[in-house]
């Protein structure tokens, strides 16, 4: 700051030449990234707010005031889709418990454990579309899941995982969880390896069993990672799209059973071409996500102290 307000000396010292050169360089280094972010992020951010006050439909737009928002709040499908998005958030606690447990299991020095780690992580590198299609085969009437359940005598008739409106969303959430466990496991592994071994030894001498050790040492030790995984996986859950698209055949499911807010946004904007209305939806949904994330971080942050 001080550099700017000072007039340049007539005979610049080496130090101030450095500073000026550095300042110009700094902006030059930043310019390309900022340019891209402006065009592909900040301008759209302004635009979406503008669109949400218009009846934009890809061809023209006229100002309609807050009527998009008024219609949105009166739209039962919007409220239903928002509710489904929040149901989808149940993935987050399940993912945290499963991936932390798995991380503890593969953190032990067992022979060949690296191979298992890699196997568990593998779904994360495969596209959600391919995974959705694989699970279409798994969930089918003659698929793996129905077959195994019937062989085991658990069921007599096949379960219509992707046709029964009550099961569509839970089935898709199952896929999201299946795909995410290994990914978040790796994050927890990084956290586990930072916990000093001596703490476990001390607890063990004091007579704590394994479960107690993990509850009183591991869980507090990886608290920051729990917050991180919580935030990342809930954002991912709220914007899940690929699995829903594939497993509901691009329709959002029978009786809109898989219609999350993200999918409703896609439908309004790109199927119905209601860009203005979808923009209002995007703004409201994003506000919900932002508030949710901040609350999440606050809770996690305060607990850590």
């Amino acid at each position: 700051m001080a550099i700017q307000s000072k007039p340049l000396p007539v005979k610049p010292t080496t130090r101030s030449v450095f500073k000026r050169r550095k300042r110009v360089a700094a902006y030059a280094f930043l310019a390309p990234a900022l340019g891209f972010l402006t065009v592909f992020f900040f301008l759209p951010l302004v635009q979406v707010i503008y669109y949400s006050f218009t009846d934009f439909d890809l061809y023209g737009a006229s100002w309609v005031g807050v009527s998009n928002y008024r219609n949105l709040l009166a739209d039962p499908l919007f409220w239903m889709s928002l509710r489904k998005s929040f149901v989808y958030l149940i993935c987050t606690p399940i993912l945290i418990v499963l991936s932390l447990t798995l991380a503890i299991v593969v953190n032990r020095p067992l022979k060949g454990v690296a191979f298992f780690r890699a196997m568990y992580f593998m779904p994360a590198v495969i596209s959600a579309v391919a995974i959705g299609m694989i699970f279409e085969l798994v969930f089918a009437e003659q698929g793996l899941l129905n077959g195994v359940l019937r062989e085991l005598g658990v069921i007599r008739r096949p379960i219509a995982f992707l046709q029964d409106p009550a099961l569509v969303l839970p089935s898709i959430m199952g896929v999201t969880i299946w795909r995410g466990v290994g990914y978040y496991m790796v994050m927890f592994l990084a956290g586990l390896q930072a916990i000093p071994k001596e703490r476990y030894e001390a607890a063990s001498i004091d007579g704590a069993n394994t479960l107690q050790q993990h509850w009183y040492i591991t869980v507090p030790g990886v608290r920051p990672i729990i917050v991180l995984v919580g935030v990342l996986s809930s954002i991912a859950a709220l914007r899940a799209f690929d699995e829903i698209f594939i497993l509901t055949d691009g329709t959002g499911g029978i009786l809109n059973s898989g219609l999350t807010a993200m999918f409703y946004l896609y439908r309004q904007a790109f199927v119905f071409n209601n860009v203005g209305y979808a923009s209002a939806l995007a703004v409201v949904f994003s506000l919900v996500i932002i508030v949710f994330t901040i609350v999440n971080l606050r809770l996690g942050g305060n607990d850590a102290r």
Partner: peptide, 21 residues
């Protein structure tokens, strides 16, 4: 720059599409 992490991607999807097209 950090603020780009806060805003969910679906917020900018629609105008991004319009501009892109």
């Amino acid at each position: 720059i950090l603020s780009t992490l806060v805003f969910p991607e679906q917020l900018i999807l629609i105008p991004l599409y319009v501009t892109a097209v």
